[in-house]
Structure formats: C-alpha cells, structure tokens
Design a protein around this nucleic acid. Sequence first.
RNA 1: GCCCCUUUAGCUCAACGGCAGAGCAGCCGGCUUUUAACCGGUUGAUGGAGGUUCGAUUCCUCCAGGGGGCACCA
Length: 535
Amino acid sequence: MPADDLIAERRRKLDQLAVLGVPSHNVDFTPTETLDGARRLLARMEVDSSGASAADEAPDGPEVRVAGRVMQYRLQGKSCFVHVEDEGERMQVWLRLDRLGDDEFAVVRLLDLGDIIGVRGNLMRTRRGEPTVLASALTLLVKSLQPPPEKFHGLQDQETRYRKRYLHLLSSAAQRRHFAARTTVVRSLRRTLDNRGFMEAETPILQPIPGGGHALPFVTHWNALHADVYLRIAIELHLKRLLVGGYRRVYEIGRVFRNEGLSPRHNPEFTMLEAYEAYTDYHGMRELTESLIVDAANALGPQQIPEQDGGTFPCDDPLRRSFGGRELSLTPPFRCERMVDLVAQACDFNPVEAWDDLPERAHALGAPVPIGAGAGAALLAIYEHRVEPELWDPTFVLDYPAEVSPLARKRRDDQRFVERFELVVAGREVANAFSELNDPLDQRQRFEEQASLRAAGDDEAFPLDEDFLEAIEVGMPPAGGLGIGVDRLVMLLTDAATIRDVLLFPTMRPRHREEASAEDVNQSSPPSAEDSERP
RNA sequence: GCCCCUUUAGCUCAACGGCAGAGCAGCCGGCUUUUAACCGGUUGAUGGAGGUUCGAUUCCUCCAGGGGGCACCA
C-alpha cells in the first residue's frame, strides 16, 4: 500500500476521533512515573506485601499515570494490550472495555503504532508475569500520521537511518543508548578540562581568513558587506589570541568545517576539541590528553571485550575496550616514542643520518611524497606509510618535522624538528598537540614559507594572517596546545566503524536534483539586508 | 575524481530471461490474560531514462541515491 494511502488512513482516523470529540493532540497529561519508575514501584510493592498479592486474582496495585509511544498493539475484541515506550523503557498497558467504557474504548480501536498515549491505571502483573498498567483512563496525546518502521526488524536501510535519524532512534533503543554515549564522552571532556581550571570559550566560525589547519575551507557570502567569508577549519588561532589576552587555560569544543569528500572517517563538519595552556609545553599536553581519554573511557564504563576464540567476555575494567573486534588497552601510561625512532625500527636506516636522502627513500618505499617536498615531509610520509597503521594501543608519537608543522615551536637541539606529538590509537590519529610557537619573527617566517607553497599550487598551505601575527607580536606566553577530533574519539570509545554512526545527522548529499537546485535558487536571490532587518 | 557492490509494497525480505511472492504495517470481520498475539478475507511495489529481446526485476548503456575500497584529507 502506498505511503500516501497509509497516511490518508490515519487522517481518516483523525476525522473519526473528531466525531467522538477526542482531540488528536492533548497536552494536559502529567505522568506520575517514568516507565522504569513504574516497574520499580511494582517490584517494591510486591516485596512489601511479601509476595502475597502476586497471585493472578490479586487486587489492583497503586495507581500511576504513565505515557509513551505505542510500539506494539494487540487488539482482541473487548481487550487490548499495547506496549508503550519512553526513554528506552517499554511497559505493557492493558486496555479493557469494562474498565474504560464504550467511549474511551472506541479510541483504543482507533490507535495506531506510533501514537503517543497517556494512561492512568493500576500496576499489576499479568498471568505471564509481565508488569502491566491496567488502564482506567486513556488520553490520546499525539496521533501519528506516518507509518513507523517494521516493529520487529526495525529500520535496516542505511540511507534512511542516516537521513531520517528520528525513525532510526525511535525504532531502536540500542541506537539511543549509542548516541547517549557520545554525550557522555563530551560531558567527560568538559568536566576534565573544567576541573583543571580551563575556561570554555566561543570563538568565531565565520572568518575572513581561515587558518590553523591544512584544509580547504567552505566559502560563504556576507550580503551586507558584499564579501566572501569562510567557515573555520580550526579553532587554534583565536584561542591563542585569548592566551595573549591573559587567560591561562582556554578551550573550545565546537564544529569545524573542511571542504573535503565523505568517507568512513570524514564528515565535512565535525567536532573539534582544542585546549591551550600557558606556561607548559607539549609534555603538559601529553599528560592532559591521557587524562581526557582515560576519564572519558571511565565515564562510559565497562564494555564487552573480544576473546581469541571469537567470543566476547565482560570485563569490569573500562580501560580494556573492544574496537573492531580487537582488544584495545587504554591503561596509562600510554606508550611514548619519537617519530624518528619508530621509523628507524620499521625501516633499516636512521632517518636523522639519512636526512638528505629521505625523499628518495620515501619514494623507494612507496610512500606518497608531495612534489617538491623536503626531507621533513618525506619523513612524515614514510612514517604514515610504514608505522602509523601498525600502532594499536595508544602511542604518543613525538617530534614532527618542522616543515609540516608551521605553528609549532622548534626543538632547541635540532631545528629540523618541532615539539609536537600526535596520539595514535588503532592506527588512527586521535590527538595532535605541540609546544606553541610564540616567536612572532619565526612565525612570520613560517607563514612566508607556507605562502611560497601556496604560490606553488598547494592551496591548503596556510594563508598569512597579519592580524594573528600582530597578536603574537604583543607577546603570547609559552604554551602547550592540543586538538582532539571528538568524533573519532567517540568512534574509538564506542566501537563505531564509521563516523556516521557517531553523528546524529551525518552530512548527506541532497536526495534529488530538485532539492539541490531549490537551494541554488535561494542562493541566487537572497533576501536583501533591508528586507531582513531586525526589529 | 576512480573502482566494486547495491536500489523490488510504508517497513523487512523473496523471485533459472517467461503472469513479481511472503511476513509486518494497513483495511474488513472474529476474539476480554496477549507477548513479533492468533484466525478468515483484502489493498498495495521492480529508483529514473534509454537499449537488446517475442518477452526484462533479471542482460547492456547512461543518470541519481546509498554502501564499501582507493585517492584527496587529519
């Protein structure tokens, strides 16, 4: 039956309800118990009465009011069982003609899966032992006009799951728990930072010059100024300005936007945590990173972890987790290695000694090196090609080539490297941090190197940001800075295979060409500034 | 951007190139302790456009969406 017919059928029921004088949307119903609370109340009552009233001829238990969405509906003549669901809990409701009377039972006959109802009634157990509210009054709170997903198999279609997440969520308690876990992680990140005296800041998303990361920005248009502006690709440069302004510890958890394709690990908009602390360096950030991750894992609690024979066993240590069918240990302290040492172990040469040969060696190893790349970029390419995918348990990879780190402070003992680490877990980068460059002369020089890369065609090289340089010239305290891809961290901690499984509303292509062109029309004739003047 | 897979009823799934089936949901009828309730009846579909063929859900081409991989990317 076409969807339109199913909707028409439900609208027909609205008309019938109107004839009965029953509003389709009611607001004056206040539950006395959550479904879980009602269940516990029943259990408590049974304990208090020493089980004496558990017999099937038992009188009614305490009266409650509960509400929820109708997920199952079993009408049998003059009696009807429904399961309502709310906050991930389900509870059976028993609607009987002899309790409700003809008028309200007529409403029962017009119920559909997906409706939201409120029930006043008494707690009891049915013959099969199921906790049940035996209804003495029924209030239709919301009539649903759309057919819900299949009640047993749920919503299987990946595309619909992503595009209509509300359907996915309402048909799957497991999904709701999954996304609640994301909130638990984010809340834990904030708590860890707040406890350490960090101040949460909100900095601009619309920026005249996008900076702080290697990425292409989205461009948008500011009508009033007849000027293009960019959506931020990183938070970094504004948080550093706040250090100049005198805050000692600042952070932001917010959305950044990168003009890239989609993949299981990439969404064009994603959530970044960046934190900056004065008078410390990347070693301080290392300690902070470890705490953030350990705290988040502990906040999530234990998880089933995989066994060699393919099974799983429950483990009460939240730091022993499962990812992709393999055990992952987040037990601190995390391993800590210099990039050059890791490369030396994986290949049979010392990259520091072979410095000038690195582009050639990278090429020989099949590591993709950008054209015109120097030794530093080649070292990074070798590392990413040969080492990074093999790192499983958390590993801090220290001391990146200066060439690929234009915002990090150089090592005093070797100017070819900067004080920077990335934390790699399960072959993926989860965090990136460095001792922040606060020498304006060095910073200007690095920007100029980037500018020449830009001129050579690297459109992801950093643009020179004069306003930022001016801020650094005022004087930024020595500081450590940290960035964590929150979505990827959540993936790790919740064993999610794709970033879309940790984003409530992942970016999707417009479904039809018509949709896309409709947006084009809007963009080509935006409302003028005069038309949209605020009151 | 490239390669592979995929798209059948509102949902979940079938169908050697030969009349497109089922379960759930819906509709009609029955049923006052059901549990994916049950019983009888019933409505409803091949992503879009071409092509090959007597005949296309099936084979081919193109387009669109989705999934996976590569590349880009952190």
